[in-house]
Design a protein around this nucleic acid. Structure first.
Length: 739
DNA sequence: TTAGCTGGAGTTTTT
DNA sequence: CTCCAGCTAA
């Protein structure tokens, strides 16, 4: 037992061994949060306080759940099946599968991912003849999900005006459609489970009695419904479960998708949390990086309060590079990377971060031209690929013919002469008889619906062929039987899709191997239907890797959001410009800015040894060049921690060669040849000013010159003062100081 | 039915 | 600029 606890620092030890009472752990970045969670689970079990069955551990991502399970099982020899460790959605799925009847769901209900959900909503809007101009499908989707995440059914939503009344009506129709088709979306998994437990007292008591310890990871990211769900499962009073919530309010960066940091304060209040433990010792970053992070986050008002420290040395200064243009920034990045690799750093340990995905294009272009291997996170995931979704749709129809989303997806794929006309007729018939599309085929079969009949025959044939096959074989049979394989063979770019379909079969084989024995029917034979349904749920709940070639020794490119939870020896944080980071669209009020700042904090704390901050004075965005101010977040880093690779304050004169701006070029920077900015107004006498330069004005504050005209005493410049607006100023009149 | 065009929009994202 | 959705023409 003591071996479990050795090596923990004081705060970690205290957290791990807390008595079974509601507890809030404020775990700073790199403070050993996962270690505390996993060690506590192991300690609770090993010290005999609880059996594995009595533990429920909840995470947000499958990755986090997998890691937690792996680390717990590494500490204790136990059967992982007894432990309930999973994502909110995964656990809800498990509960709903078990209690489908009480939850009012068909046994083989299927899960809509967000793409499926959007398709279902579009179909609904079309059916109801609702104009897309007034009710864009995306908005309706967002509306429905927000209501569900607030715990509200359509019947409970208050409509204040005609418009909201109509939206609520759409929500109601959507509920009916999903119920008829036997499908649930992501938010529904949560809401349905919550309602199930709320309404079914014996069931609720059963689980409350079972789960004596509930541990929650990334608690700051929970939404209102998830918190309600946790409260319900934990039960109240002295007999309630020990709810152990770990989170970091400073790393709350998902408010835009419903995360409610307020849950931390609410938890503290509602559960009368007596001790809040702060994990403040950071084991990841060198001192300077940590100090920079602390200095930045101190500017936020709404904090529970926490200050990271380390006993490691200060390390290197924060390096800052101010480029002329986005292209310039990219060239510098390439040079710096090349010299780092030359010095023996591993590419895998270097991350290039940016605020928005659009920024990766320029960087990728430069990296590609320079032949530097890189990997971009984000983009299509395995189970989201077109060919995979098609194959899954056939599988879904085998399980549930009433799944209209799946039906529409493949009724004419591969093309079999079933056009929009036919489908419209079919949908009309289905609506009139109040049935699914499949069941309506008979009604239209006479009127040119013979292709439809053939499609039904195809499905029937697949169902026959599939019976008795093991899961991977079944999928292979469906892929070829449905004509997908043939179709992609004939397509020019179909090779990769074929490979992915093969990959789907292997994924199923792996899945079946792991699930072996879990699906024994009454005869003791594997129940393929159940196995297939579970595989389909798995596909919806875990969309798979973003990219396949994960192992390559490549520089890692990703958004700051995607970097949360990761760490790298060296981090390049690019595009630190007002408007980009903090992003314009986030600057609605104090809350928005504070979330941006937390994002900055997350970015900075990803770095272990070395952190670069970079920005560009001009940047091509949406087809035009923009001149942005230096990000306020750079200014929030104490200057004594920084080493500017470019002069921090003095702007270059027009006539001077651009590279004279370097007073301390690094090895890499020296090699860069620097073209003059394309926006230069060379030849024009602007009194030492130039486009792209930061200037300050007595009344408007700091701004950046975005254009110029005239010369000499007539010279005028256009300056972007950010919030103060964009102004034209005559140089003969206005006093502009270079900044 | 599909290719090709046009117009509009353009943070962040897991399940 | 570049991607996408939705529409029109063949």
């Amino acid at each position: 037992m003591s071996s479990l606890l050795t090596g923990l620092n004081e705060a970690q030890f205290a957290a791990v061994t807390l008595p079974p009472r509601p507890a809030l752990i404020l775990a700073g970045a790199g403070s050993g949060k996962t270690r505390v969670l996993t060690t506590r689970i192991a300690w609770l079990i090993q010290s005999g306080q609880v059996t594995p069955q009595g533990i429920l551990a909840v995470t947000f991502t499958n990755k986090a759940a997998r890691e937690m399970l792996a680390r717990v099982t590494a500490m204790l020899p136990l059967d992982p099946r007894g432990l309930w460790i999973g994502t909110f959605h995964g656990l809800c799925n498990r509960l709903l599968r078990t209690h489908f009847r009480d939850a009012g769901l068909p046994q083989l209900f299927q899960i809509l991912d967000s793409g499926d959900q959007l398709a279902a909503i579009k179909r609904l809007l079309k059916m109801l003849n609702v104009g897309d101009d007034k009710f864009p499908a995306r908005d309706v989707q967002y509306f429905i999900n927000s209501q569900k995440e607030a715990g509200l059914r359509s019947s409970a939503v208050e409509a204040i005006d005609e418009y909201s009344r109509q939206r609520v009506a759409l929500y109601a129709e959507y509920e009916v459609q999903c119920q008829r088709e036997g499908v649930v979306d992501f938010a529904e998994l949560l809401l349905r489970t919550y309602e199930l437990l709320e309404r079914n007292e014996p069931l609720r008591h059963h689980y409350q009695a079972r789960f004596r310890h509930i541990l929650v990871d990334e608690f700051q990211d929970t939404n209102r419904l998830q918190y309600q769900w946790l409260k319900c499962l934990a039960g109240g009073g002295d007999r309630g479960a020990a709810l152990f919530c770990v989170g970091d309010d400073d790393q709350s960066i998902y408010a835009f998708r419903g995360a409610n940091v307020g849950n931390m304060r609410a938890f503290e209040r509602e559960f009368r949390v007596e001790t809040i433990i702060r994990l403040e010792q950071n084991y990841r970053s060198d001192g300077n990086i940590l100090q920079a992070a602390n200095a930045i986050i101190r500017h936020n008002r709404q904090r529970l309060g926490k200050n990271l420290w380390t006993d490691q040395a200060d390390g290197e200064p924060i390096r800052i590079f101010e480029a002329f243009s986005d292209g310039d920034e990219g060239r510098w990045l390439v040079e710096e990377l090349q010299s780092l690799v030359g010095e023996g750093f591993s590419r895998q340990d270097v991350a290039v971060l940016y605020r928005s995905n659009a920024q990766s294009r320029v960087l990728e272009h430069q990296l590609f031209s320079a032949g530097i291997p890189y990997r971009v996170y984000g983009g299509l995931r395995f189970f989201e690929r077109q060919e995979i979704k098609h194959a899954l749709a056939y599988l879904r129809l085998l399980v549930n013919p009433d799944d209209d989303t799946a039906f529409l997806r493949v009724v004419n794929f591969p093309p079999r002469g079933i056009g929009a006309r036919t489908i419209e007729t079919l949908q009309d018939a289905a609506r009139h008889s109040g049935t699914s599309l499949v069941r309506a085929v008979a009604a239209v079969a006479g009127k040119g619906g013979s292709n439809l009949s053939q499609f039904l025959a195809l499905l029937e044939g697949l169902r026959r062929q599939a019976s008795g096959l093991a899961l991977p074989d079944l999928i292979a049979r469906v892929v070829s039987g449905a004509g997908l394989a043939m179709h992609y063979q004939n397509e020019r770019e179909g090779q990769e899709r074929l490979e992915n379909l093969d990959e789907l079969v292997s994924a199923a084989a792996n899945f079946a191997a792991e699930a072996a024995g879990r699906h024994l029917g009454e005869s003791g034979q594997p129940d393929l239907h159940a196995e297939l349904v579970e595989f389909l749920s798995h596909a919806a709940l875990e969309a798979g890797d973003h990219q396949a070639d994960a192992g390559a020794d490549a520089v890692q490119l990703m958004t700051v959001h995607a970097a949360k939870g990761l760490e790298f020896g060296i981090v390049f944080l690019t595009g630190l410009e007002e408007g980009l980071f903090p992003h314009d669209n986030s600057l609605n009020g104090e809350d928005g800015l504070e979330e941006e700042r937390r994002l900055m904090y997350v970015a900075v704390t990803r770095a272990r040894r070395r952190l670069y901050l970079s920005l560009a004075q001009s940047r091509m965005l949406h087809g035009q060049t923009r001149y942005n101010l230096r990000s306020r977040f750079i200014t929030e880093v104490p200057p004594q921690l920084c080493k500017w690779l470019t002069p921090p304050r003095v702007g270059a004169r027009v006539a001077e060669p651009a590279f004279s701006r370097y007073f301390e070029p690094s090895a890499a920077s020296r090699a860069v040849s620097r073209p003059a900015p394309t926006t230069s107004v060379a030849g024009r006498d602007l009194g030492g000013l130039r486009v792209g330069q930061n200037v300050s004005h007595g009344r408007f504050g700091v701004g950046v010159i975005v254009a110029a005209e005239g010369s000499g005493s007539d010279a005028r410049v256009q300056v972007n003062f950010g919030k103060q607006g964009v102004k034209w100023l005559a140089l003969g009149v206005a006093k502009l100081e270079p900044v």
